Computed example of a mutant assay.
Amino acid sequence: MPRTLGDDEVRAAVPMRDAVKAVRDAFTELAAGHFTQPERLVFGDGAVLVMTAHHAPSGTAVVKTLSVRLDRDPAILGTVVMAGTATPLVADATAVTTLRTGAVTGVATDLLAPAGAGRLALLGSGAQAADQVRAVATVRELREVAIHSRTTANARALAKRLGEEFPAVSFRVAESVEDALADAEIVNCATSSETPLFALSALPENVHVNAIGSFRPSMRELPTELLATASIVVVDQLGAALEEAGEVIKAVEDGVLDRDAIVELGAVLPSPPAVSGRTVFKSVGVAAQDWAIARSLAAHEE
């Protein structure tokens, strides 16, 4: 029987820098058609999720089963199982999910944020938050991080923990969203909000925004006006975004965002676009990301 790899084992085997590379490669392969990736199964209005992907070149497949309760810490519990390797692999889904979600933010930030961007605003202080910072720090030289959360005590604890991990970076707790965003060059949204976290007017004119928190049509972190006016809107996968990303669904339904103008991450990785103004990356998470981390874990275990 395979053992289940826990959080410490997952992170020891796949540091964030390796995770970013693995996820970047997986999205390139996804765009090339190397994955069979059905839409994820959703039960109980998102209380249970099942995600699967098969990678044809290697003959390997991953299945992730999650229990999601937003009033629980951690909100996500479950397992990731990889088949087709020499030894079947089972890993803690919380560790894999936060790592791969951070990693895709790193990929998108590297693609869309200005090369010298070093000021990050982090909205949210839950289980996903730390890996959001770690991922950006992997692809950009961070100087300042402003954290805003509806629970100030959590924001302070996170700032202290990350400050010890990144002593060269200045961390502070912002008392308001507007304060956090005032001079941000990169914004990471990692909340379960059902209403936009900020008004468009609160954003600087030149900023890259990552949004990874919402995964249901009823959830929205970003204002519709941002998606309507951004110079580019990139998603992990168009079909998944149109089914699950509340802010994308609303912007398309309102007629302010043309679905044909939405760009998939894998499609632009080979030829990075010239970017300016405000740019957006919206992720709901796809199974190819889980495969990327699980494949890295399996290679480490062999």
Rank of each mutant, 00 (worst) to 15 (best):
G102A: 14
G102K: 15
G102P: 15
A103N: 05
A103Q: 07
A103I: 07
T105V: 15
T105P: 03
G106T: 03
V107P: 12
V107Q: 12
V107E: 13
V107H: 11
T109H: 09
D110G: 14
D110N: 14
L111F: 02
L111G: 06
L112W: 05
L112V: 00
A113L: 08
A113K: 01
P114E: 10
A115E: 09
G118K: 05
R119W: 10
L120H: 01
L122T: 10
L122D: 13
L122N: 12
L123P: 13
S125Y: 10
G126V: 12
A127E: 09
A129D: 03
D131R: 04
D131C: 06
D131M: 09
V133K: 02
V133D: 15
V133W: 09
R134W: 08
A135G: 04
T138F: 01
R140H: 04
R140W: 02
R140S: 01
R143G: 15
A146V: 02
A146H: 02
H148N: 12
H148T: 06
S149R: 03
T151E: 06
T151W: 08
A153M: 06
N154D: 12
R156I: 10
L158V: 00
R161P: 09
L162C: 09
L162G: 11
G163Y: 05
E164K: 13
E165I: 00
P167L: 05
A168H: 14
A168I: 01
V169Y: 15
F171H: 04
R172Y: 04
V177I: 10
E178L: 09
A180I: 01
A180M: 02
A182I: 07
D183T: 12
A184T: 00
E185C: 07
E185Y: 08
I186C: 11
